[in-house]
């Protein structure tokens, strides 16, 4: 990034640090830096503390590999949750999203990425070995693959089905189709095909008419 001689080196350093964050352009980086500069000292301290704490006190859960403060994490420890199914996701944020939906009460496994053949990212770069170790446990009888419906997700799900299939564990994959609020008219062929293939019965009311 260009550094103007009018910017003090300490501010320039902060701007550069913000600019390195995902989704932050040079303009936003500048705005954030000057916001911190003008904010009360306590606010800046809280930010710095939160940054360091997240680095110092989080680790990966030895079970699900999610990011956690305590190992095993709260989800892995929860006795109310079923141990017989593991939902495999690409990223920690995917766990948070599925949890918000409130429909799933089993275990998770976070791969920390997806297979990307053209970038040379293979299964050995993900938490696949850890998943296979968990599946050896006789109590798991279903693995739900919840990868993104894109090429990397397809490659990952394809690979995992082959490995897990050979272990004799039942595998399902979350359905994909039209998202809520979408237009059928604008949907691409593959989405429509998926939506048609995974269509569901409409509940009929008894004794109508």
């Amino acid at each position: 990034m260009q550094r103007s001689p009018a910017t003090a080196p300490t501010i320039a350093r902060l701007i550069e640090a913000f600019h390195r964050l995902p989704g932050i352009g040079p303009k936003s980086a500048q705005r954030l830096a000057y916001h911190v500069l003008r904010a009360p000292r306590a606010e800046a301290e809280a930010l710095a503390e939160a940054l360091l704490e997240v680095k110092d006190s989080t680790r990966l859960c030895g079970g699900c590999q999610n990011i956690t403060d305590a190992d095993p994490c709260a989800i892995c420890l929860d006795p109310q949750r079923s141990a017989s199914s593991i939902c495999v996701v690409e990223e920690p944020l995917d766990v948070a999203a599925i949890e918000r939906s409130g429909v799933y009460r089993g275990q998770y496994h976070v791969l920390h990425g997806a297979i990307s053949p053209m970038d040379g990212i293979g299964p050995e770069d993900l938490k696949v070995r850890e998943l296979l170790a968990r599946l050896g446990d006789a109590s798991v009888d279903e693995v739900i693959l919840a990868m993104n419906p894109n090429l990397e997700g397809e490659a990952t799900a394809g690979y995992l089905s082959r490995v897990i299939g050979a272990m004799g564990v039942r595998i399902t994959r979350i359905a994909h189709g039209l998202p809520v609020g979408a237009d059928v008219e604008y949907a691409d062929e593959r989405t429509l095909r998926a939506a048609m293939t995974h269509r569901v019965e409409v509940e009929q009311r008894d004794g109508g008419g």
Binding site: L135, G136, A155, Y159, V163, G165, A166, M167
Partner: peptide, 26 residues
């Protein structure tokens, strides 16, 4: 680069089988 995944895929079933037998052993 995609050649690496081709090889992983070829080994996939063997990896699954050996993971299953390691678990049985345990």
């Amino acid at each position: 680069r995609s050649g690496g995944f081709l090889k992983s895929l070829e080994r996939a079933e063997a990896i699954g089988r050996s993971a299953a037998s390691a678990a049985a052993e345990r």
